[in-house]
Design a protein around this nucleic acid. Structure first.
Lengths: 220, 220
DNA sequence: AATGATGACTTTGTATACAATTATACAATC
DNA sequence: GATTGTATAATTGTATACAAAGTCATCATT
């Protein structure tokens, strides 16, 4: 009824529904480019590949359809909806706009508890910058943003920005100097974090806008 | 396998999948407030109500979950996610931001064909303002916006703005004078349409921002 | 009375069977 | 040779059966 994900050594294995698991896998296959634009997703083929029945496959595809990653044509099947370069460009613009608004609201609405988490996150970020651990930094960066989404106290915004993060995650990134990259990232985040300390929404919005612009420039 | 919707006199009946049909019905029940915040949606109960099997019910709920209208807790079921007044307030803000961006892009990217459709739509609007037909106007208004979404040539943006329209559709609106309302609406649209004629994205963005602010003020 | 174990019942998760639709191959017609 | 019609296979849509998890009332124990 549920599947145990391959667990990392010593790490407790997670149990999720087949549907959820499948959805994540297919999502990754689409965003990573393994599945091409327009490609048809035949249910039985997915069943065979992942050794599950059609029910969870259909539910996963159904959800992906609602999210727009896949287009479902009645009685004909599901087709991969790809993202062109120009659409990816647009996504960065759309993301920036909402990241800025989320920051504004987050600074106005953040709770003490959330503020503590943000502080902790920022300290981790300083630590991993020193350690020059890029992978860890990418994770911390992602959760920094997620905390802001959370602190904006708007489910819808949180959901949309989270899905943007997915897209951005798979967009190719060009970095020639890890150390310089980490320093830049830390500096940009510091400006945002400072706005939270100062409780200055507009300063935060501005700092986030800059962060987003720099982020875009690192992606091409 | 599919259901024939009740057809209006003389109008050709439409055939959609049970899943799609169910999804629309449940969506409406949630947004109209028939289903309350936190209420549990028991699959079998929905099956009984609409006389279908669990499969399409589960798929409809699955999609609504992906869209954020219901929350699905593993092995426990689906629960209605309501929208509080403050969230509704936020939705208007978020919508405004993207409507403005959509207008900007639409003016830059609109095709000749789309421009003709927009022109036609605007003429309809003038016509129904004269006729003082509020219902027709609301439909025309909705499709005016949809055309802009389309002309922005960004699927994602189009999809998000369409779902905002759904929310707004069910938000209570306060109008005391139909005629004055229609005149206002026409005037606001004229300003936007004029920006399309002038191919002036910033004027369009401004006009749309004003339209959104007025729209908000009519909702309270 | 409060707590916690037990078990029947309900509900969800998944697999599978069947029905309806669409895609494909191939023959008949022009 | 292109086009249309038709039979067959492949695929999607829906219903149902079974497995697993959760819910809840009951009752014994403290």
């Amino acid at each position: 009824m549920a599947v145990k994900l391959k667990s990392l050594a010593g790490v407790q294995s997670q149990t999720v529904s087949l549907t959820t698991d499948l959805k994540l896998r297919i999502e990754e296959d689409i965003l990573s480019g393994k599945l091409r634009q327009g490609e048809k997703l035949v249910e039985q083929a997915i069943c065979d590949e992942y050794e599950v029945s059609r029910t969870p496959v259909r539910e996963a595809l159904s959800q992906l359809g609602a999210e727009g990653l896949v287009e479902s044509i009645p009685n004909r099947g599901c087709f991969v909806v790809g993202i062109s370069d120009s659409e990816m460009q647009d996504i960065f613009t759309l993301r920036k706009i909402y990241e800025v608004q989320a920051t504004r609201w987050a600074i106005e609405r953040i709770t003490d508890e959330e503020m503590e988490e943000l502080e902790e996150n920022f300290e981790f970020m300083e630590f991993y910058t020193m350690k020059e651990d890029v992978d860890k930094m990418l994770n911390i960066n992602a959760s920094f943003h997620k905390m802001i989404y959370r602190a904006s106290h708007n489910r819808m915004l949180e959901q949309m920005l989270s899905s943007y993060q997915l897209y951005v995650k798979y967009a190719p990134k060009y970095i020639d100097d890890d150390s310089a990259y980490l320093d830049e990232l830390l500096k940009e985040h510091r400006a945002i974090y400072q706005a939270f300390l100062d409780k200055d929404p507009e300063a935060g919005a501005k700092a986030m806008a800059i962060h987003m612009d720099k982020s875009l420039s690192r992606h091409r």
